[in-house]
Amino acid sequence: MTLTIALAGDTMLGRGVAELLKRSAEPAALFSTGVREALSEADLVVLNLECCISDRGARWPDPFKRYFFRAPPAAAGVLARLGVDCVTLANNHALDFGVEALADTRSLLARAGVRVVGVGTEAATAREFAVLETAATRVAVVGVTDHPAAFAASDRRPGVAWADLRAGVPDWPEDTVARAAAEADVVLVTPHWGPNMTTRPPPHVQQAAARFLAAGATLVAGHSAHVFHGVADRVIYDMGGFVDDYAADPELRNDLGLLFLVTVGDPGPADPAPVRVRAVPLFLDYCHTRLARGAERTWIRNRFTVACAELGTAVHEEDGCLTVDRG
């Protein structure tokens, strides 16, 4: 068995991206041919959807919340035609327009054939994993976020799968991962963790990643920072952005990102979970993402190499990708 999963980070389809989708509801409007071809190499595509999809709802009543992201209903079909199999909504924008818009998001994505993890009508369903099936492999996807607590699903309220990872990993994420490992061949945990605009994972994120792996995760692929981090020990700490309309920070360069292609091979006695990680360099223009080139690509390669080296991992270039060497 060999399986390749395409993994993308923060995918924001609101504001300027939403206006573009109202004019052209096709994947080509948001992603270049090269990006779409890279996605087509994968057997499965999973990403963090950092918005709701709806034309209903009112803004979440928090006077300190600055950003509210809502995509038009057509966005669900765009994701499906892009080849997306599953999204996590366990993040700080799933409830930007309240429970009505969250319900629409789940319904529209289901109708388009895109699975959802990380949200639910109450805590138990929000914390449940999804199983994606290929011809020979069952892949379980687990979504969790460490912010905001106000969005957390409860026994009586819809919301996100929230865990206070800063205080340590509670029992439920580890229990979910363990149950997923018992039912599937591959377990992907995709957490929305840590603060925005950082270049390396904080200690609590690294500690949580180790706990997820110990519980049975094959791979952990995180997001939240809007800036990619390094990779080590089957953990992609942050994938950065995938598409948005954000202003670019000239130093952190959140307009330069990575699409990850992760290949999982047959386990064996000497290598129970062989995982190969390749990263495709991206340039995030205003509401449109293309492959990075020239100086953009060089900056990404240098930054990713340093970020991985800080975690004890080496990187080399191979067939247009940045490949993480396995120790």
Results as ranks from 00 to 15, higher is better:
residue 5 I to A: 03
residue 7 L to W: 06
residue 10 D to R: 07
residue 11 T to K: 02
residue 20 L to T: 11
residue 31 F to Y: 12
residue 34 G to A: 13
residue 35 V to G: 01
residue 40 S to V: 03
residue 45 V to Q: 05
residue 47 L to M: 11
residue 50 E to F: 08
residue 51 C to P: 02
residue 52 C to F: 00
residue 52 C to H: 03
residue 54 S to A: 15
residue 56 R to V: 10
residue 58 A to W: 01
residue 60 W to M: 06
residue 63 P to E: 11
residue 66 R to H: 10
residue 68 F to R: 06
residue 75 A to R: 06
residue 75 A to Q: 10
residue 78 V to N: 09
residue 80 A to S: 15
residue 80 A to Q: 06
residue 81 R to K: 14
residue 81 R to I: 03
residue 87 V to H: 06
residue 92 N to Q: 09
residue 95 L to Q: 12
residue 100 E to Y: 01
residue 101 A to V: 08
residue 102 L to S: 05
residue 102 L to N: 02
residue 103 A to V: 01
residue 105 T to I: 10
residue 106 R to N: 02
residue 117 V to K: 10
residue 119 V to R: 04
residue 120 G to W: 12
residue 121 T to L: 12
residue 121 T to N: 06
residue 126 A to R: 12
residue 127 R to Q: 14
residue 131 V to E: 00
residue 131 V to Q: 03
residue 132 L to V: 05
residue 133 E to P: 04
residue 135 A to G: 09
residue 137 T to V: 15
residue 145 T to M: 11
residue 148 P to Y: 10
residue 150 A to P: 01
residue 150 A to W: 05
residue 150 A to F: 07
residue 151 F to D: 10
residue 152 A to L: 09
residue 153 A to M: 10
residue 154 S to Y: 11
residue 156 R to D: 14
residue 158 P to S: 10
residue 162 W to I: 00
residue 168 G to K: 03
residue 170 P to K: 01
residue 175 D to C: 01
residue 182 A to P: 06
residue 183 E to G: 00
residue 186 V to S: 01
residue 188 L to T: 09
residue 189 V to A: 12
residue 192 H to F: 11
residue 192 H to E: 02
residue 196 N to F: 02
residue 205 V to Q: 15
residue 207 Q to P: 06
residue 210 A to V: 02
residue 210 A to T: 01
residue 219 L to W: 15
residue 219 L to K: 02
residue 219 L to C: 05
residue 227 V to N: 13
residue 227 V to K: 11
residue 227 V to C: 15
residue 230 G to P: 06
residue 233 D to C: 04
residue 235 V to Y: 05
residue 235 V to K: 03
residue 242 F to L: 15
residue 244 D to V: 05
residue 254 N to L: 09
residue 257 G to M: 12
residue 258 L to H: 03
residue 259 L to C: 10
residue 259 L to A: 08
residue 261 L to E: 09
residue 264 V to G: 00
residue 265 G to L: 07
residue 268 G to T: 02
residue 269 P to H: 13
residue 270 A to E: 13
residue 273 A to V: 04
residue 280 V to G: 01
residue 283 F to H: 14
residue 284 L to A: 07
residue 285 D to I: 05
residue 287 C to M: 14
residue 295 A to C: 00
residue 296 E to R: 03
residue 299 W to M: 04
residue 300 I to L: 03
residue 301 R to S: 14
residue 301 R to I: 00
residue 303 R to S: 12
residue 307 A to I: 00
residue 307 A to V: 00
residue 312 G to S: 10
residue 313 T to F: 04
residue 320 G to L: 08
residue 322 L to F: 15
residue 325 D to F: 00
residue 325 D to K: 04
residue 325 D to P: 01
residue 326 R to V: 13
residue 327 G to N: 08
